[in-house]
């Protein structure tokens, strides 16, 4: 009797490179990377995609992907992506940015890329902290949250309030798809993947600027176990950063993928 051919149920996406991770245990960057790679594979975009890495923990994002990549200056990824997309309008261009990169030093670049309706996709990792430099307050740090630069907890009177980027960018006429998802459990990870797919669909259809904000964990700098960090996302971050679709172009809303 001939054994039935094994059915492959899980394998490395072609868009993902073979490499040992440098991310901390329990960090969700790896999950986000894989979701992007799966979407690029499924859409057949790998050979026409150019990624733009940020400054932050994911400064080495390009090491994990098997497609063309550039590495931007801190906060400037949307400008760099604009330059690439404008001279190669047929190619797929995305940025991968953290909250310090996107919502602090790169605020002008992200706002204007959205205002211009740049046909680029942004994957925005919001973990409410500066990871790479060792846990300083980010523009998305929660009120009262202790960081190395808000040791008494973020005092909104003197340090200001967290910035909700999806809500802000959804107001831009140039934006075609702006949603917030979370990576804290499998069901939400599946929803995040679908959102990344729809963001790239938005770009491929020329429907404007697209961004998926992903609530992510930073166990190391939050000083929590990986499991507690996921609970922190659910219990503390989601109330401040509600999940949802903030702007979805009609064509994308009606799209079945």
């Amino acid at each position: 009797m001939v054994a039935p051919a094994p059915k492959i149920v899980y394998q490395r996406p072609a868009s993902l490179a073979t490499r040992v991770t440098h991310y901390c245990p329990g960090c969700t960057h790896g999950v986000a990377h894989r979701l992007i790679a799966e979407v690029l594979d499924e859409m057949g975009l790998r050979e026409k995609t150019i990624g733009v890495a940020p400054v932050g923990c994911s400064v080495f994002a390009y090491n994990y992907f098997n497609h063309d990549y550039v590495e931007a200056a801190h906060g400037r990824a949307p400008a760099m992506a604009t330059g690439i997309k404008r001279v190669l309008p047929q190619q797929t261009v995305y940025t991968y940015q953290g909250d310090g990169d996107l919502a602090s030093i790169g605020m002008a670049e992200i706002m204007h890329a959205a205002a211009r309706g740049e046909q680029i996709t942004v994957v925005f990792i919001n973990n409410a902290i500066y990871g790479m430099t060792g846990g300083q307050m980010a523009p998305t740090t929660l009120p009262g949250m202790v960081t190395t630069s808000s040791p008494g907890g973020r005092d909104v009177e003197s340090m200001g309030f967290p910035i909700r980027m999806s809500e802000i960018l959804a107001k831009m006429d140039g934006a075609g798809y702006i949603v917030r998802r979370s990576l804290h459990d499998p069901a939400n990870i599946r929803k995040a993947k679908k959102a990344i797919r729809l963001a790239f669909e938005t770009q491929e259809r020329g429907l404007g600027f697209s961004m998926v904000e992903l609530l992510s964990s930073c166990p190391t700098n939050w000083k929590l176990t990986p499991v507690d960090a996921l609970t922190f996302i659910e219990d503390r971050m989601i109330p401040m950063f509600p999940l949802g679709d903030y702007k979805v172009n009609d064509e994308i809303a009606n799209l079945r993928v």
Partner: peptide, 15 residues
């Protein structure tokens, strides 16, 4: 939107 953005667009396009 600024010279900062302009040079980074140049950077991307130069790549």
């Amino acid at each position: 939107e600024s010279e900062v953005a302009a040079i980074n667009m140049v950077y991307g396009a130069a790549c």
